[in-house]
Design a protein around this nucleic acid. Structure first.
Lengths: 343, 343
DNA sequence: ATAATTAATGAAAACGTTTACACAAGAGGC
DNA sequence: GCCTCTTGTGTAAACGTTTTCATTAATTAT
């Protein structure tokens, strides 16, 4: 007994109509008479017909797929953004295909080619870099791409981000207000625009308090717990003029700093204050609960998908980037990892 | 200037050959003469041709898509499994489409329908439940589906899991060996087979030590930190005969227990020992570092995809579940959240 | 009554591929 | 010189849809 999947032709035959009528009964019911509509319905039930989406998409010249490029799907930071995107996409009848690029330009290029090969209708970039095939798009043609999380300088595609400079400023300001002056900054990777923006905010806050930024207090990590640990170990070694506070560019690195501080017998926040970035779920339940900059991750995803859907709707119209980039607000969440500067 | 994407026909014309030859030059190079192969190559370069994957897939009657059903993509537990799957899949030329079911049977059914509608060639289930459309597959027809993480009783599809009973046994045994006898168990949701298996392992360990399991020491959570907190609050309230140790069915709940214990001024492990499950990345860096059962998540994913690929290869052959289920070994990682029972 | 409109349907083209089949030309064996 | 093989290529059918266009029947307007 061979499994034969029913096609539209089987349905047509069973209902005694043409395949065109079956198709219309499904997609433009108002244009087909009630009696035949019923016949088609029973035929569909009888044959167990399910439309072949691939054939449909080929005809319609769309894939129904939105490609999402993320640097690392394992990072919980991205999963909530993803969730916001997924929800908006599926409401609009799209599926979200996740491309885990692992920060490799090669993989980015491979995925970006999906746009050309009709495997995806549009793309959202969370990776902060324009894939090669996209970079040399002919002038005047705007690809269906939205950038989220990290702005890409010199690229005027629709973008939704947070104000990293401002967020870093307020985090640093919080530490200054607590009386700290030796404030270290554990930054992200150098290649990252995030890093530049946050360092700038950190610097501005110090400057406004009349403090000259000390380059030896800026350390470069990679957002991971481990990089936070090693940064803190290095910075806290010299017990004489060690920093009394850390502003970290991710919650992971902040946790790393706390781990290292405890290792050295330092209490947080009594001896050392620590501010993170992102407000991952665990931040509230770490010991001590983390003071951090909350990124509205779900909102970020929602905004990104809605920008993209708008772009896909206007078939030929200029997708006016009226206010580009879209900026979603952050919030400094003060918990118990920060306290007054020790005497 | 209208953007016109080159088709195989454009290439054929440009090279002065038929479209059949172009197709062959691409997929069966040995069968076409060297000179035309070169002509085709230059034509491709000149036109900027990229094959339309959708058309190709329609013709070949495949989608190149593997559907992965997960209950919650936001859970970091799944992301490493995903990573293992993704790697194997992309090596075999497949893409992985993630279906976040949010534990809703409706969404599971919607996604499972992708198999019928040719949007996916195969499916991997991490959600521990057979989607409705799959449940009534005609006898004798084995759908291209692999189950991972949670076995589904009465379902003999290829499965790859850990031995939950045994893992729970060894975790509980570890606590017994430390002298604990009032050992609480924070279990997972009742609907979950995991829960049953782990409770059984917990019970067996107690029984082997001649301890009768006390039903009031078994609490039901949902794997979240929050549920761990409320379970521990309830169990630790009665300071008289409170448990001295907790075996938790997830690291999240274990962290919750620790949060609650600290809240009450109890020290871990001095006053209370805690064992988790999963060994998520943070477990090693929590305070204290968590004793936990390590699940080889990447291996789990790799095994699942390799089972699936094997199934997809043998076109009609019986995918002999020679050893079904495949069991990947777990490991008890002893860190500092467990210690001897207080006097 | 007849012309003009509307409503419902079917035939066939199209989407961009892959591949079964047919065919032509050249190579080799007798 | 003829038959057979091999090699390379083209023609056309198929994959399962949607949609344009034409056709018929039924309704309305004149």
């Amino acid at each position: 007994m061979i499994e034969k999947i029913a096609t539209i032709e089987d349905v047509a035959e069973h209902a005694g109509v043409s395949i065109a009528t079956v198709s219309r009964a499904l997609h433009k019911p108002h244009v087909v008479s009630e009696s035949t509509r019923e016949k088609v319905q029973t035929a569909i039930a009888a044959t167990g017909y399910t439309a072949n989406v691939m054939a449909r998409n080929l005809r319609l010249n769309r894939s129904g797929m939105i490609l999402l490029l993320v640097p690392d799907i394992g990072n919980p930071f991205f999963s909530e953004i993803l969730s916001g995107i997924e929800q908006g996409a599926s409401k609009a009848g799209y599926n979200v295909l996740i491309g885990d690029t692992q920060n490799e330009p090669e993989r980015e290029a491979t995925y970006a080619a999906y746009l050309r090969s009709n495997q995806a209708d549009a793309m959202i970039l969370l990776n902060g870099r324009l894939p090669a095939p996209l970079a040399n798009t002919p002038r005047g043609i705007i690809p269906p791409v939205v950038i989220a999380c990290e702005r890409i300088p010199g690229c005027n595609l629709p973008t939704v981000i947070i104000d990293n400079e401002k967020a870093a400023f307020s985090a640093t300001k919080h530490l200054l207000d607590l009386g700290h002056s030796r404030i270290a900054h554990i930054a992200g990777p150098a290649s990252n625009i995030l890093t530049t923006d946050r360092v700038a905010g950190y610097r501005r806050a110090l400057a406004e308090s009349g403090i000259e930024a000390n380059p030896s207090l800026i350390y470069r990590g990679d957002f991971s717990i481990e990089s936070g640990i090693s940064a803190a170990r290095a910075l806290l070694k010299d017990s004489k003029n060690r920093p009394t506070a850390f502003f970290c560019s991710s919650d992971g690195m902040a946790i790393g700093v706390i781990v290292a501080a405890k290792e050295l017998g330092l209490r947080v926040p009594h001896d050392v204050s620590v501010v993170g970035f992102d407000d991952i779920h665990l931040a509230a339940n770490y010991d001590p609960p983390l003071t951090t900059v909350r990124q509205p991750r779900r909102r970020l995803g929602e905004q990104a998908i809605s920008l993209l859907l708008a772009r896909l709707d206007k078939t030929g119209a200029i997708p006016g980037p009226a206010e580009n980039p879209v900026i979603v607000p952050t919030e400094l969440i003060i918990r118990q990892s920060t306290g007054p500067c020790p005497a």
